[in-house]
């Protein structure tokens, strides 16, 4: 079992935990942990830039989450009765899916043999500024939209 697979499984486990956790705080923490493991995966795959960006997102994400979680959670124990059966079905489906994927992995990987040989390495700068400036523009739009959305929601909350 190589590192790569271990890290992926870790990612999956933390993700599962964050969905299934009963406590909001625990969910937030496991999400942060999942994000960290993703960063490690990226580093392991020799994509340092991607890893760095992911780390920054993780950091920002954790900050925001913790702040909002703390502000929302008033009491330690706040139980809302819900049907846990749905949640326990999640790992079950995950397992089923995993097995299915294991079975189909072989023909899939065979099918997805690259049609063209991989491109020559281009550095990040060229990629971002020349080849993918459209995506950057898109990203800017995401920021604008996100800011506006937050404004739309929480301004209202504050007013109300």
């Amino acid at each position: 079992m190589n590192l790569h697979l271990f890290l992926l499984c870790l990612l999956l486990a933390f993700g599962l935990l964050s969905v299934m956790a009963r406590s909001l705080l625990l969910a937030g923490i496991s999400l942060a942990a999942a994000s960290v493991s993703l960063t490690l995966v990226l580093f392991e795959m020799n994509a340092p830039w991607a890893g760095v960006f992911e780390l920054s997102v993780c950091a920002g994400l954790i900050t925001v989450l913790f702040v909002s979680t703390v502000s929302v959670v008033r009491r330690e124990e706040q139980f809302i009765a819900e049907n846990r059966l749905r949640f326990y079905s999640l790992p079950f489906f995950l397992a089923v899916f995993g097995m299915a994927f294991w079975l189909f992995a072989e023909p899939l990987t065979r099918a997805l043999v690259p049609a063209v040989p991989p491109q020559v390495q281009i550095n990040v700068g060229t990629t971002l500024w020349q080849l993918r400036w459209g995506d950057l523009l898109g990203q800017l739009c995401v920021f604008v939209a996100g800011a506006l959305a937050i404004n739309a929601f929480f301004r209202n909350k504050n007013n109300a």
Binding site: V142, A145, G146, A149
Partner: peptide, 12 residues
Amino acid sequence: VFVEVTAVASYA
């Protein structure tokens, strides 16, 4: 990416 922008804006 632009589809995601659309999604965020529509959500709001």
